[in-house]
Simulated scan of single mutants.
Amino acid sequence: MAVDVSRAKRLVRELPGAFRLHTEADPRPANRRIAAVCAWAAALGLGGMAVALRAFVGLIAQYRAWYAPTVIAVGLLGLACTIAAFASLHHRRLPFALLGVASVSLTIGWIVTGL
């Protein structure tokens, strides 16, 4: 399988720009966009606290070797996507796509901790 070198070079060139913090030269995102990302992230944080409480009870109640690594991996995925949403706030759709992935991660965490 041949790798398209031009596509790989373009990805290497554009990826750092997708996740960078704002500078003074960047246009300021709209207040509505900032508020929407903050509200969604706050809801994810509250939901994450509920999942963390369920995970804590699940860790104490019964030993399952797969449980702790699975809960940690799902939680870190959601946390990383939420942080990346703030880092990519100057993009049009990327923050909301990342928060969508974080929401799916939260749902998976809720399901896993209910087992």
Rank of each mutant, 00 (worst) to 15 (best):
L98R: 06
L59I: 04
T113P: 02
V101I: 15
A36M: 13
V101A: 14
A87N: 03
A8Q: 14
R32M: 05
R32T: 11
I111Y: 10
R20D: 03
N31H: 09
R7V: 13
G109I: 05
L53H: 12
A36S: 13
C38G: 04
H91Q: 11
P16W: 04
C81K: 12
A41T: 11
V104H: 08
R64Q: 11
L46R: 15
P95D: 01
I83E: 06
L98P: 07
R13F: 07
L46N: 13
H22C: 08
V12N: 07
K9Y: 08
W40C: 06
A50Q: 13
I34W: 00
H22D: 10
R54H: 09
A41F: 01
H90F: 04
L98M: 08
V3A: 08
D26P: 11
V74R: 01
F96D: 01
L98G: 05
P29L: 07
G75F: 03
W40Q: 10
G45I: 02
A84Q: 12
N31Y: 04
I108T: 15
G75Q: 05
L98V: 03
W110L: 14
F96I: 01
I108L: 14
D26H: 07
R92K: 13
V12E: 14
Y63G: 02
E24W: 12
V12G: 02
V71Y: 00
A42R: 15
A80G: 06
T82G: 07
I34L: 05
T70I: 02
G45R: 02
G58N: 07
L106S: 04
I34T: 01
I34H: 00
V101C: 11
A73I: 06
A52N: 12
A85R: 00
V71S: 04
D4F: 03
R10W: 09
G58P: 09
G75C: 07
S6R: 15
D26Y: 03
W40P: 00
R7E: 11
I72A: 14
R54T: 03
V51I: 06
C38S: 15
G78K: 02
L59E: 11
L53G: 07
L115R: 14
R33V: 11
A55C: 06
T107C: 10
L44F: 01
G45L: 02
A97M: 13
G78Y: 00
P29V: 06
M49R: 14
V74D: 06
A80I: 09
L44C: 00
T113C: 07
S103C: 13
L11R: 15
A102Q: 03
V57T: 10
T113N: 02
H91S: 08
A52H: 11
P16Y: 05
M1I: 08
V112I: 14
L99I: 01
A41D: 06
Y63H: 14
A43N: 14
A43G: 10
